[in-house]
Amino acid sequence: MFSLKVLTGGLLGWSLGTNDAANIFGTAVSSQMVRWKTAVTLIAIFTTIGAVIGGSEGLETYSKLSNQTLDTASTICLAAALAVTAMTLLRLPVSTSQAVVGAIIGVSLAQNGIFEWSKLYKVVLCWVGTPVGAAILSMIFYPLLARLIRRLNLHFFTYDYLMRTLLIIAGIYGAYALGANNVANVTGVFYKAGAFGKVGLENSKFAALLFGGITISAGAVTFSKTIMMSVGKSIVKLDSFSAFIAVLSEAVVVHIYSLIGVPVSTSQAVVGAIPGIGIIKGMKTVSFSSLFKIMIGWIMTPIVGLVIAYTLLGI
């Protein structure tokens, strides 16, 4: 039996699912290219598959960062969930991965415990690399795929159908990448604490990944519609092809980081892809105030996670 403390991880997974589903299918759903029910069904299936098939590298990374007990793991997830909520209330772009890492550091510092600072540089580099990578990928994908589509000389019914299909394919891939990359945020610390069985055993790893995948899916299925519509509409200013490129770039970059084993933010990947498309199209797609907000979110999220975790353990 799992400890009830694992439920804090479930809560974090649920919140992650509610927020990040919008980064995958927000544009397609809000522009009515894809029905919300279809979108969340695909997210539920492919996030879970992604978590189970591709999530083990992330689990290993979090295992190496520090040692956890069930209590500290639960504190980390609770702190991260509170940090995500606080940042969301402040309307700042938030990364669950950053909140979790901040909370891990906070718990380690509070306990005067061990924290592998040397492992942290790889994680921070990946945080920076996420939006930058997505921007570069979108600048590569856009002209290549645009040229291909121009050659097809499609009339507008066929074009719309193709766009819907591409948005679904990119969404499926995005859901897979989300599960593979972000499952470690949900169950990484619990896996290390032995909540799913002995660390290193295939069964315990499978249970951790499956639990994480299911909770992220649950978030998408139960509560993502409102966020999907509002986030999607802020991205939908882009045409459907640009939206497809943004989601594809996000999915590829997040998938790459899941192979490296570093959980990153899908929101930051999307935010990076959009100015990349803007550069290619010669138009302004992001404002300096938005960039400033992102920078603030970047710095604040791990700090808030750290402070909350430190405080919670102090209490």
Binding site: M33, F156, F157, D160, Y161
Partner: peptide, 9 residues
């Protein structure tokens, strides 16, 4: 049930 974008246009 065409795509709403096509339908609207």
């Amino acid at each position: 049930s065409l795509i709403p974008e096509s339908r609207g246009d």
